[in-house]
Design a protein around this nucleic acid. Structure first.
Lengths: 229, 229
DNA sequence: ATACAATGTGTGTGTTTTACACAAAAGTAA
DNA sequence: TTACTTTTGTGTAAAACACACACATTGTAT
């Protein structure tokens, strides 16, 4: 194939985590290069023999040690000068993980991985602010019509966690009663027999998301959709 | 920048048009190459010095003569073997145009452009069926919450056109009264003083979409959203 | 003038969304 | 043991919205 093209293809990941208080973003520190000491999204150049999603997953694992089970393509960024090193287009992905499930890789020679509150991000390299913005938008909108919030929580969680998660992501308060009513009405949450004891106050039942049931319902035309005042 | 990568970047466009009866897709015939005589999405390799959207727009114009004013990135396809000629990733776009505004470029040595009903597509090259599918999904879902339907109609149109457009795209019938009521309730349609005479029956007022007003309302938190029984 | 074809319009009913407050279950401190 | 604090768990009434549904109007063609 004769094409005279000198464009490199990179993949980058916007990885969200939730701690119970804050929405967080996973970043790595650039130790070398023109953007030294800035922070960047995990990512890197795609290999000739791997497909896009495999590529991000690999880079993510190499650079931070995490292996998300939710990974979704976001957008492809291709402005001519987005990377001062040359023409690079970046296929970006959004990943959701529960930070508790991983210990971040310690600093390697290439990078140092760390969680940052989405509200206090350090200076980011390249056009990564734009990519993060796209990720946030996607997360905020998708959480309304896809049950992706559960990817950020423990397998079993008290209702209040789910509620706080939504409030944190959407950055607004929601009515507890209406939220619970609506969520439960979908019939995709299962009450477990366990309960969780908060540091003070009444213990809460633990719930879990029943993915099988969700898939079943979805086949039948059901749509997860949650809105707020 | 030293990266040993041999991946080419292409851009492809899923171009939808509406004739008043059918949703149509703009395709070009492959005259050479391994996929000779199949039809393909307009598109081609990205140039080193153009950004993605510029690239699709250029290819689209070169190959078919159309210049869409609605162009939106869809998805990036990157399976390893999607193109038998080598490793090529394709950044796909969706375009909406009113076919009446253009005369398709006659057959050039490279290709022959033609509209096909979405219901009777010829065999498509590469993974283009998958790309088309993505485009259709996007169109179907986006038409519910973004005023993109107007891009497919004349500037001034009878209400029935809009209605038929929605029915065609969504492939289901909708209640005329409720649809009209809801659409008008947004306050983004303007009644003109002109009217349109159908071949038979009562003449219809012509409406036009007021984009400025839509943008204003959107700023204030308004959301275009239309659903059906 | 009559038949035909498409446009234009309102209301009642059911469903969904919203707003809102108090009791129950634990732990802790007097 | 009692009372205080904290968090969970729950119902109802009003408002907004979605849905189903039918007939008069305005033009053309015969």
């Amino acid at each position: 194939m004769k094409v005279n093209q000198h464009i490199k293809v990179a993949v980058d990941a916007v990885v969200f985590g939730y701690t119970g208080n804050e929405l967080e973003l996973l970043l790595i520190q650039q130790k070398y290069g023109s953007e030294k000491n800035k922070w960047a999204l995990p990512g890197g150049f795609l290999k000739d023999e791997e497909d896009l999603q495999t590529g991000v997953a690999r880079e993510l694992n190499e650079e931070t040690g995490v292996n998300p089970n939710y990974l979704e393509q976001l957008f492809t960024f291709g402005s001519i000068n987005r990377d001062p090193r040359g023409r690079v287009i970046s296929v970006s992905y959004m990943a959701l993980i529960n930070p508790k499930n991983y210990v971040l890789k310690a600093a390697t020679d290439a990078s140092d991985a760390k969680w940052f509150s989405i509200k206090e991000l350090p200076p980011l390299a390249y056009d990564h602010p734009e990519i993060v913005k796209k990720g946030l938008e996607r997360l905020k909108s998708k959480i309304h019509y896809q049950p992706i919030g559960f990817e950020l929580l423990n397998k079993e969680f008290p209702f209040s966690d789910l509620e706080k998660l939504y409030q944190t992501i959407l950055d607004k308060s929601i009515d507890r009663r209406n939220f619970r009513k609506k969520m439960l009405s979908f019939g995709v949450l299962e009450e477990t027999d366990k309960s969780y004891k908060p540091s003070s106050g009444r213990p809460a039942k633990l719930f879990k998301f029943n993915k099988r049931k969700y898939n079943e319902l979805e086949e039948k035309g059901f749509h997860f959709e949650i809105k707020f005042a």
